[in-house]
Amino acid sequence: MITFLMTIDDLKARNKLEELYKTYHKEMYITAYSILRDHHEAEDVVQNAIIRLSNNLKKISKIKCKKTRSYLVIIVRNLSYNVYNKRKKLYLIEHSEVQRLPDTEEILMEEQLIKASFSLEMDQFLKQLHQPYLDILTLRYYYELEIKEISNLLDITDNNVYVRIHRALTALKEILKKEGVNYEQTL
């Protein structure tokens, strides 16, 4: 009986990863290729993404849905940025600049600003915000991942995740200000 139940568990895990791969392998590969323009590097990125996803399968509840599809695309996209930046010897965040930011030290945007932002076209923010910043905010606030989960998935350190989120929020605030939304208070 125990062996039978174990087999069912194994099959579930195996099927999930297999189904993910079978459903989205093309999307993953094309996303990586579109950034890197190199088949070998694109293949490496997809392999890396699969390895990282296989350790975090619990976060994926439904396979055939747009939310899962974009989740995989965002992960592959950011892993591709890492490879691209390494190739170009560019680092999004220099290690010397990295400072640990506690969770509580999130930048809170002012209520007036947020209210105003709902009346504006969201695309305006999306277009102006650096894509890796947008993606990290998406993983944190839309997919509700922990810092550790994000760092594991994107192959970056926890500190880098903290700093990226902090910078993304700062940039977002600047964009909102530029869009003409005034605010008076700061925390």
């Binding site: 094309i30 747009k66 905010l137 839309y142």
Partner: peptide, 26 residues
């Protein structure tokens, strides 16, 4: 909570765009 809602909304749109982008790439 307002911040979280705003950022969730932002994430939702980014996710939607990611799907559109990948459709275009395909």
């Amino acid at each position: 909570r307002m911040n979280d809602t705003f950022l969730y909304n932002l994430g939702y749109h980014n996710s939607k765009n990611a799907n559109d982008d990948v459709d275009a790439l395909l």
